[in-house]
Simulated scan of single mutants.
Amino acid sequence: MPFDKLDPIAELESTWRSAVAGTAVLHHDLRQDNVLLDAHGSAWICDWNWPCLGASWFDLVLLLASANADGHDATAIFQAHPTAREVDHDQLDAALATLSGFFLASGAQPPADWSPHIRQHQTWCGEVTLRWLAERRGWHLWPGLR
Rank of each mutant, 00 (worst) to 15 (best):
Arg31Leu: 01
Trp44Ile: 03
Leu12Trp: 03
Asn49Cys: 10
Gln122Glu: 10
His72Lys: 08
Asp7Asn: 15
Ala39Met: 07
Trp50Glu: 15
Asp90Ser: 09
His81Ala: 14
His28Val: 08
Ala134Arg: 05
Ala80Trp: 00
Phe78Trp: 03
Leu62Ser: 14
Trp57Val: 10
Val20Ile: 14
Val20Leu: 02
Gln91Ile: 07
Glu11Pro: 02
Trp16Tyr: 11
Pro111Gln: 12
Trp142Pro: 15
Leu37Gly: 02
Thr15Tyr: 11
Pro110Lys: 08
Leu104Cys: 07
Leu53Lys: 07
Ala76Met: 03
Ala94Arg: 01
Arg136Ile: 04
Pro8Ile: 13
Ala112Gln: 10
Gly126Met: 10
Asp113Tyr: 08
Trp44Tyr: 10
Pro111Gly: 04
Ala80Ser: 14
Cys52Tyr: 02
Leu133Asp: 02
Leu37Asp: 00
Gly54Lys: 01
Gly107Asn: 09
His40Ala: 15
Val35Thr: 05
His28Trp: 07
His81Glu: 05
Met1Ser: 12
Leu130Asn: 03
Val61Ile: 13
Asp59His: 07
Leu141Tyr: 08
Leu63Trp: 12
Ala84Ser: 05
Ala69Lys: 01
Ala21Phe: 01
Ala76Asn: 04
His117Glu: 14
Asn34Leu: 06
Ala21Asp: 05
Asp59Phe: 07
Ser66Arg: 01
Asp73Ile: 03
Trp139Lys: 06
Gln32Ile: 10
Ile118Met: 09
Trp16Ile: 15
Leu30Val: 06
